[in-house]
């Protein structure tokens, strides 16, 4: 692919959505759009990253993000290795820096990192010479997830200006929500949050978006409902009393969705807890669910990020 993009995003790292401007985002999404088309072809192989080494460094277990990055790297012709590092929580930090130094000596070109501590990707980027891509750091950011959400939405709406999107569920513990809020707002969408107050940052009201505690009000007139995963451990930390009460008030079902626009679409970053934050009936309704499209966009967006960073390097 020799097409030139209005390449405003060149790295040196992708650590978060905060810090990107709209042109940079658009250039990444333009690139990704072409990769979506490529990925639907029988021959999906390019050699944009030929001779480059991509290291997937995952300190937290992940299936979809890791395989998405792995595929993205391989389709662009990079040599990809996966390092899943299981550590005790005490030794985790030491491992991060030590591993970074060790890896750096092997001269990778692209380092994809997921870590349970906020800021870990940024810290790593200070210790290595290659491009670092944040694949999720603690409860801070997950920029490629936000980009893939934006790409999926752009495919449906074209321009996101004025599109009303409700992000529902565990916002306070969600890196996806933080990246999405920043990115979708940047793209001109009207973002709303809906969750019980225990699952919202106390300061969310200052984020320039509307905050709701009631799904009927939040979903009113929405074009898109994005549902976040509710982790089971939230039940033990007294954030919510039970899964059934949560589902009753915040789980997305037909009745709640009926408050949104008639043709409203549903998204979920996965993996889903069916019957907790989302009703199976909704998740499996291909007419309204974008969940599999999100996965498809994921590979394309990650290819775009890798290609842009590799290009920026030279």
């Amino acid at each position: 692919m020799t097409k030139r993009y209005k390449d405003t995003f060149t790295g040196p790292h992708l650590l978060g959505i905060a810090g990107l401007n709209r042109l940079e985002v658009e250039s990444l999404l333009d690139r990704a759009e072409d990769f979506v088309a490529l990925n639907r072809r029988r021959d999906k192989h390019l050699d944009t990253l030929k001779g480059r080494t991509l290291v997937n460094l995952f300190f937290e277990p992940s299936t979809r993000t890791q395989s998405s990055f792995e595929l993205a790297g391989k389709r662009l012709g990079a040599d990809v290795i996966n390092m899943a590092i299981k550590t005790s929580s005490v030794a985790k930090g030491e491992t991060l820096i030590d591993t970074a130094v060790t890896l750096n000596a092997m001269h990778p070109d692209l380092l994809v990192v997921r870590h349970s501590a906020s800021g870990a990707a940024a810290l790593l980027s200070q210790k290595v010479d290659c491009a670092v891509i944040n694949a999720g750091d603690g409860t801070h950011e997950h920029p490629t997830q936000a980009l893939l959400d934006a790409l999926t939405l752009r495919a449906h709406f074209g321009d996101l200006a004025g599109v009303r999107i409700a992000i529902c569920g565990d916002v306070v513990h969600s890196r996806v929500a933080r990246s999405d809020i920043t990115l979708l707002t940047l793209m001109g969408a009207e973002v709303r949050l809906c969750a019980p107050p225990t699952l919202l940052p106390a300061s969310a009201g200052q984020w320039g978006i509307e905050v709701f505690h009631n799904m009927d009000d939040a979903l009113d007139g929405c074009d898109v409902v994005m549902v976040l995963r509710l982790q089971r451990e939230r039940m033990t930390s007294a954030c919510v009393p039970s899964t059934r009460e949560y589902f009753r008030y915040y789980g997305l079902d037909r009745a709640k969705l009926s408050k949104a626009k008639k043709c409203a679409l549903v998204m979920h970053p996965g993996p889903m807890n069916r019957g907790v934050e989302i009703d199976s009936e909704i998740a499996d309704d291909l007419a309204i669910s974008l969940i599999t499209e999100q996965v498809e966009s994921g590979v394309a967006v990650r290819m775009a990020v890798l290609a842009a960073l590799a290009e920026g390097e030279t």
């Binding site: 800021g119 603690g138 409860t139 801070h140 933080r178 940052p201 300061s203 200052q206 984020w207």
Partner: peptide
């Protein structure tokens, strides 16, 4: 410190 800045940093 709990507050907006901590929320943004995810801490």
């Amino acid at each position: 410190n709990a507050g907006d800045f901590a929320s943004r940093l995810g801490l």
